[in-house]
Simulated assay, not measured.
Amino acid sequence: MMLVVGGAHSGKRTFVREKLGFAADDFVDAAQFAEGGVPAAFAGRVAYCAEELVRALDADRALERLIGFDVVILSLVGSGVVPMRAEDAQWRERAGRLGCALAARADVVVRMTCGIPQVIKGNLDDAPRGTQGAGAPLEVVFVRHGATAGTEDHRYSGAGTDEPLSSAGERALRDLACYRDVFRVITSGMARTDQTARILFPNAELMACPGLREMDFGDFEGRGAAELKEDARYRAWVDSWCETRCPHGEGKNDFTRRVVAAFREACKSERAQGSGRAVFVVHAGTVKALLSELAVPKIGYFDVHTEPGGAWAATWDGRYLRDVRPASGGDAR
């Protein structure tokens, strides 16, 4: 993540747009996220006016809303004339604390003065880049891991359940074609994705990306709908279409934002290595989150169905997934 700070009208957005290649519609006003979560489509883009977010939230909650953006723009409001109103002084204090927290997390921090950037942390070569400088499209393949005991018993097996493939799941994968000319595969790092990758792509180096793990189902982990049907918390979660958080776990928006941010970073890494293709072995929910938020034309979250060992292919242009289709054998070659 990159933090850009400076006074009002100091050239912060112009710098991010012209020097880093972000398009005008990559920018989103952070103030609008005070009352709710950040739509995952904005994760990995640019949030500006971050200081306005702490008019309604404390610095810790504001920081939670901004995690996942590639660039955060913050106006410096803590210096100058001492405000007469107590609420203005408190807002400036919160904005200062937010700036400190963002700078601690950021890989690169730039201060703008009169349109001139000064790097005060990190190296500008490591700064994120927008789609206008994204380069050639990247072909991507998403493979769902094979069946586990939890899959077969229709239990919620998420980020908190690291179970292996079942015997039947392994056999089913071995009946599929393996691709010996794929040499790098990105997994969630969980046992079931790593096992699947080793079966289908035996010559590939595995790169673990924990941000691509399945939703954290919290108290529902390892349990099925039949067992949970009398649990009022479970009924409330289902009735919300998974928008609310699982007790001690994630909600759909939190989960999707996490997955989208991790996917963007993984694709940047693949491009940096000169690859024109990225193969992911992940989870059913992960694929739902990515396709529902990034696919063009739009696909509904609950309209994405991937059987164990099933796959999707698409073209990633740095902003959207295009030409989304069920994967054929040739897509992984």
Rank of each mutant, 00 (worst) to 15 (best):
Q132W: 00
G122S: 06
V109P: 00
G130A: 07
I120C: 07
N123A: 09
P128W: 07
D126N: 14
V119F: 02
M112P: 09
A103C: 05
G99R: 10
G99T: 07
D125S: 04
C100P: 00
T113S: 07
L98Q: 12
Q90F: 04
R105V: 05
V119Q: 05
G99K: 03
M112A: 05
R97S: 08
K121W: 09
L98Y: 11
E87W: 13
R94V: 02
C114M: 09
V119M: 09
A127G: 07
R111A: 08
G135R: 09
V108K: 02
G133I: 00
L102K: 05
D107Q: 08
T113A: 11
I116S: 13
P117S: 01
R129F: 15
E87Y: 14
Q118W: 04
N123F: 08
G130H: 11
Q132M: 06
P128A: 10
I120E: 11
R94E: 03
C114E: 10
L124H: 09
T131W: 07
E87I: 11
T113W: 06
P128H: 13
M112K: 08
L124G: 03
G96Y: 04
G130C: 10
R105L: 15
R94K: 14
G96Q: 11
V109I: 05
A104F: 03
D126C: 14
V108L: 03
V110H: 04
C114H: 06
A127Q: 03
G99V: 02
D107F: 00
N123I: 03
A134C: 02
L124C: 01
G133R: 06
G133N: 12
R105C: 08
T131C: 04
W91Q: 04
T131K: 13
A95Y: 02
V109Y: 01
R94L: 11
R92T: 00
R111F: 06
G115L: 01
G130F: 15
Q118H: 07
M112L: 11
A89M: 14
D125M: 10
G96F: 10
E93F: 05
D107V: 00
E93C: 05
L98C: 11
I116W: 10
G96C: 12
V108Q: 04
C114I: 08
A104P: 06
A103F: 12
A134Q: 12
